[in-house]
Amino acid sequence: MSLTDTKIRSLKYIPESRYKNWYSDGNGLYLVVEKTKKVWRLRYKLKEWKTHKPFTIGEYPYMSLAEARKKAIELKSLVQKGIDLQKWKKQKELEKERLQNRKRVSDLVEEDLDIQKQNVSESRFKKNYVGTFNNYVIPFIGEKFIEDVTKQDILNLIKEVPKIKLKNDTRSVNKTYKAKEVLHILRDLFEFGIDNDYLDYNPAYNIKIDRILPQHKEQHISALLDIDDLRELYKKILNIENPITSKIIQFQALTILRNGNIRNLRWEYINWEKKRYYLSKRSNESYT
């Protein structure tokens, strides 16, 4: 006879664990009453087997009678297809574990940054790695699982990079230099994922920036050629409130040195007697 909820509730737990009572509900489904619990199980048998095997479905009352019957029908359909329920369960558990351990792009970035932090200077690490990831990568694909990132995702991201204008960034937004940098850092990121067996494919591989973004044309600042304009500019330099800034710009205006030459200039490069300065200690090129 089929089981009922009333009958199941009335079944007493077996006081000694070495004894078990089981009660059939039909179609291979039965209830096992143990020392402290009542467990649903299903008897099943593949065509090539000689005997049946038990398969645990759930525990009563967490799985009701109606739910156990419905689950038994679903499992029976798998058995009819030649599927061993024990192997099927193990596969499901492995799949569940894999899904729980799936990494998002933001997770991979965090791991990669832990490595990069040890290999570069602190300033470069913050600007070229942390800053680049936070400003150009995480907002677009940070929440995606790494194995779900496609080449099209990378293409869409790269096309957006030149349009991004960051706070306190004085450079033109329509440059491709940052897009190239972001693409390079993404290639390294996914290679890091491959090296650590997180994925098998690098979606940033084999993408050519020049094929998806127009080449940037340099536009130089116009030179001041009129003497009156030069005088006006020099007056403004003399009126700069910060004396250090004013002297530096005066020096640059009078010597016509590039920024890099000024930054690297040393006192020993200057010949006070001849009133000349040299670009380096060994330089033969001098300026009055």
Rank of each mutant, 00 (worst) to 15 (best):
Y287E: 05
L265R: 04
F190E: 05
S17H: 11
T51R: 08
K76G: 15
I244H: 14
K275D: 06
E218R: 11
Y44V: 04
K275L: 11
I209A: 05
N196S: 07
V173E: 13
W40F: 09
V173G: 09
K71Q: 14
G28Q: 04
S106G: 07
S77K: 12
Y198D: 03
V39P: 04
S246T: 03
R258H: 10
R263W: 02
L199K: 05
Y30I: 01
I221W: 06
N239L: 08
E74G: 06
G193Q: 00
I158A: 04
Q118R: 12
Y198S: 00
A253I: 02
D188K: 15
L108N: 02
K117C: 04
D195G: 03
G82V: 06
N27D: 14
I248C: 07
R69F: 06
K87Y: 04
E273I: 11
D114W: 09
K103E: 02
S77P: 01
R187D: 10
K70T: 12
I83N: 08
S24P: 10
I115T: 06
Y201A: 04
L85E: 01
D169S: 13
Y234V: 01
Q118M: 11
E147L: 02
D114N: 13
H220K: 13
E111F: 07
L254K: 03
A72E: 05
R266Q: 15
F190L: 05
H184W: 10
E143L: 09
S17W: 08
A68S: 05
K81H: 09
L11Y: 15
A72M: 08
P61C: 04
K117L: 11
K90M: 07
W22V: 07
I146S: 00
V105E: 05
I154D: 00
Q252Y: 01
I248H: 05
Q250R: 12
D226V: 01
A66F: 06
K76E: 10
Q252C: 00
I256Y: 15
